[in-house]
Design a protein around this nucleic acid. Structure first.
Length: 311
DNA sequence: ATGGTTTTTACTGCGTC
DNA sequence: GACGCGGTAAAAACCAT
């Protein structure tokens, strides 16, 4: 593995956007891939991910994606889009020595880079490329849209600039960044899912999440039950009608004593009721399984929802 | 660590097919 | 009898403090 390109994020249009805006030579890796992110006032290298400035990320609007097509739908309304699209620094190119071992090559190149950087790039650190790879990997494993992965990268950068990575495993911070980004983008993934897709354990990611959340004062929205409906519905193979009815139930339930209850359980209950009332019955056990909660919990959450779907 | 809350597990009874 | 469903009690897990 000596290089990865932004294209393998999702195989989508990434490839074509690597080099626009590029031109300046990166002091770090020599590639002519520096570009300016005018909005955030940083200079980023598309080849090695180097960032020359410290800058807080914009947590962006709290978009939500309501259906199964969310993955393919890349046009979202509102500001913040440019932030997303400007993050093209995902590509990494590490080392070119053919006959050293993988590890040696990686190490050598990192060291070389670090040394250069130390003289005039105090803000960067050698783990970044690895972190980016890791974030992409997790993003792929969890089927997250590009926007989410890119947000994760920004969060990682922010964490790094706050020296949050010091003393922590890169893998852990990377996984945590994905967790946060997924929530912010309305494509939430459970802690278990993140942990499963990454090397550090659940507890570690969880603890890191808390600290990151605190230290960086990130505006991480709670997982909305609505955001989970599509995924659960598709697992159950129920038509869109059910999905829509479930969303309606949840929307009308909003404001009741929903806080504290797990979003998955509420979403499950909504789908259960919606399915039943639209003539697409799925039993509580099945719905619970799809949402990863018990049937008992589905029952209990039914209490929090309106009794009838809209006519 | 603690206490309050939610979720799970396990078990029960009821109605229906 | 098997199934879906609703209820309950006790334990476990979670979260804020």
């Amino acid at each position: 593995m000596t290089s990865t390109t932004p294209a393998d994020l999702d195989g989508f249009d990434a490839e074509t956007r690597v080099d626009d805006e590029a031109g300046l030579t990166c002091p770090e890796c020599g590639a002519e891939a520096l570009y300016e992110d005018e909005r955030r006032g940083e200079v980023v290298c598309a080849a090695c991910g180097l960032v020359d400035s410290e800058n807080a990320i914009d947590p962006g609007p709290e978009w939500r994606a309501f259906d199964a097509d969310q993955r393919n739908e890349r046009s979202r309304a509102g500001p913040g889009r440019t932030v997303m699209r400007h993050d093209r620094g995902l590509g990494t190119k590490i080392g070119h020595q053919e006959n050293a071992s993988l590890q040696d090559r990686a190490r050598l190149s990192r060291m070389r880079r670090y040394q250069q950087r130390a003289t005039y790039q105090p803000g960067a650190d050698r783990g970044l490329a690895y972190a980016l790879t890791e974030i992409k990997r997790i993003g792929n494993a969890l089927d997250l849209p590009d926007e989410t992965t890119e947000t994760a990268v920004q969060i990682y950068r922010q964490a790094r600039e706050a020296e949050f990575v010091h003393g922590r495993k890169i893998e852990t911070v990377a996984a945590t960044s994905v967790l946060v980004a997924a929530r912010m983008q309305g494509t939430p993934r459970r802690l278990d899912e993140i942990a499963e897709a990454s090397e550090p354990g659940r507890d570690q990611v969880g603890a890191t999440f808390r600290k990151l959340h605190r230290d960086l004062e990130l505006a991480v929205p709670l997982t909305a039950p609505q955001d989970l409906v599509a995924a659960i519905a598709s697992q159950l193979d129920v038509p869109g009608e059910v999905e829509r009815a479930a969303l309606d139930l949840l929307d009308r339930a909003d404001g009741k004593s929903l806080s504290g209850k797990s979003p998955a359980s509420l979403a499950a209950a909504a789908i259960y009721r919606a399915a039943k009332q639209t003539g697409h019955h799925r039993n509580q056990e099945m719905v619970g399984e799809a949402a990863d909660v018990s049937a008992v919990t589905v029952r209990n959450r039914l209490e929090d929802l309106p009794a009838e779907i809209a006519a």
